[in-house]
Nucleic acid binder design. Structure first.
Lengths: 152, 152
DNA sequence: GCTGAAACAAGTAGTGT
DNA sequence: ACACTACTTGTTTCAGC
């Protein structure tokens, strides 16, 4: 099964994923096509939702978030999931929230200033949410690597 | 304790994190400062490593990755960690790898085409790495939210 | 540490094949 | 589905305050 994306689409996505500020005109030059073709393709890919947005990636440690943790949440009863999720969304330090299979109902990613701050988030906020039975926290000592998936 | 970043830095980071293609000149206008000041600040923030890079965010599902999973890896002996990590890095579908505290030594994020593909990655690749005792996989049914941390 | 002007490069839209 | 042209806008550098 092949994707609905041709070589030009694939190249555009690859190049812009590496550098969102890359000039469209330069991509055109590298692919030996016109400026406006690149424009049209990007417009198409954006309207299709393949391109979601463009963002600057910032260093969270340099901005004061030294403690990163993955935390699994156990629920008292499975039916609390949505309600708990809505409460979790109110906590700014929780930057990602997933419904998952397995031991935990919900799996979250937390960026805290330090370990003490993380403890406060867990004890004074997450644990007080109605329906939360308990949490298991995996503190991230080091992100060995982080990269993009392959576009085929 | 305050950050070493003033209002202009903070605004630049916030605006560019929301939209990496935003014109620097427009940021200048919004903040009522000169064009070149924005340039100088961005240069400074980039050289300091606060700004890491700029990337387009793509929809992984539309590009064929339907199954996302968080997977914890248990090691036969803790000292295998680095070696195992280097082997994990060779598997393209593993897009993030962390050393963590708790039950698992290593925690990874996998983007697979479907459940069958995920199974192959785990059984035919991860489980064959020397030092890996076992894995626990949390398949992500839904990412309820994903957002940026607050810049203060 | 910041501005302003000027030269250059890129983005955008319309037209034509 | 693509290229060409003309017009608008943004980027970048540097002299000067």
């Amino acid at each position: 099964m092949k994707n609905q994306f041709d070589y030009i689409d694939q190249q555009i996505l690859t190049k812009l994923r590496e550098d969102a500020r890359k000039a469209f005109s330069q991509i055109a030059e590298e692919l030996n096509v016109s400026n406006s073709l690149i424009h049209q393709r990007i417009k198409k890919l954006t309207s299709e939702g393949v391109i979601k947005n463009a963002e600057f990636v910032l260093d969270e440690k340099k901005l004061g978030y030294k403690t990163k943790s993955y935390t699994g949440i156990r629920l008292r009863e499975a039916r609390f999931a949505k309600e708990v999720m809505r409460e979790l969304e109110k906590i700014d330090e929780i930057v990602e929230c997933n419904f998952v299979s397995g031991n935990y109902a919900i799996f979250i990613l937390i960026f805290a200033r330090d370990n003490e701050h993380l403890q406060k988030i867990l004890y004074d906020k997450v644990h007080l949410i109605n329906g939360v039975a308990g949490t298991d926290t995996f503190i991230c000592f080091d992100t060995c690597f982080k990269r993009n998936f392959v576009i085929e």
